[in-house]
């Protein structure tokens, strides 16, 4: 059964994706060390690496947002209900019976409705919250000097938010990594994120 290859992910997109993946994983590892969950790098080194990756991520995030709007790729993230139920049913039921994925990827629509909504929430709510709370955490001690701009007099709420969303992102990571195995072959999706091309099997439409 020979399928066709379509070009889904541009070079920038792939570099951005893997760099962001790396940063998030390192941030999670060092972040939970700073949180006191375990000790690995040593506290001061963990703080340094965490801050370095955090600031790098901010730059990368803005590059990504810029790219989204310049290329018009932001349209890929407009949520839709079309086939949403089908996709949910597929992952919870059809996949076990070897059914075909109800959503068909194309250059114009590379994310299924579930991906659209999850990535949209992640990129527009969760990540900005994490970045903003991170910046606040990082610059906490300088806020009073900037003219009483401190919204929180204590680090508590900021630390709470930053920790909460770290868990949310970790949760996403676990599911996201698992979902990559649900392609036609176990590594099909991961492969396409490296090469940019996705193998599409022949289908009836």
């Amino acid at each position: 059964m020979k399928g066709k290859r379509i070009y889904l992910f541009t070079r920038f997109e792939r570099i951005w994706h893997w760099l962001q993946a790396l940063l998030i994983i390192v941030l999670l590892i060092t972040g939970f060390e700073i949180h006191g969950t375990y000790s690995l790098l040593g506290y001061d080194r963990a703080v340094f690496v965490h801050n370095f990756c955090g600031i790098t991520w901010i730059v990368l995030f803005f590059l990504f947002v810029f790219w989204l709007f310049v290329t018009g790729e932001w349209k890929q993230y407009i949520p839709t209900t079309k086939k949403m139920i089908d996709v949910i049913l597929f992952y919870s039921y059809g996949i076990f019976k070897g059914e075909k994925h109800p959503f068909h990827k194309s250059r114009e629509e590379k994310h299924n409705p579930l991906q659209r909504i999850v990535y949209l929430i992640l990129a527009s709510i969760f990540l900005p919250i994490q970045i903003l709370s991170g910046i606040y955490y990082y610059t906490y001690h300088t806020w009073p000097k900037l003219g009483g701009l401190a919204i929180f007099s204590s680090l508590d709420p900021v630390a709470f938010i930053h920790t909460l969303f770290a868990f949310v992102i970790l949760q996403f990571l676990v599911i996201h990594v698992y979902m990559t195995t649900t392609g036609d072959t176990v590594f099909a999706h991961i492969k396409s994120m490296f090469t940019g091309y996705e193998e599409i099997k022949e289908t009836s439409n």
Partner: peptide
């Protein structure tokens, strides 16, 4: 709030449970 010392007890326990279940 002292990072590394302080926890939000319920948050850590709940979150790790959810992640484990996931």
């Amino acid at each position: 709030y002292l990072p590394g010392r302080d926890r939000f007890g319920f948050l850590d326990n709940l979150a790790w449970t959810i992640i484990l279940l996931t």
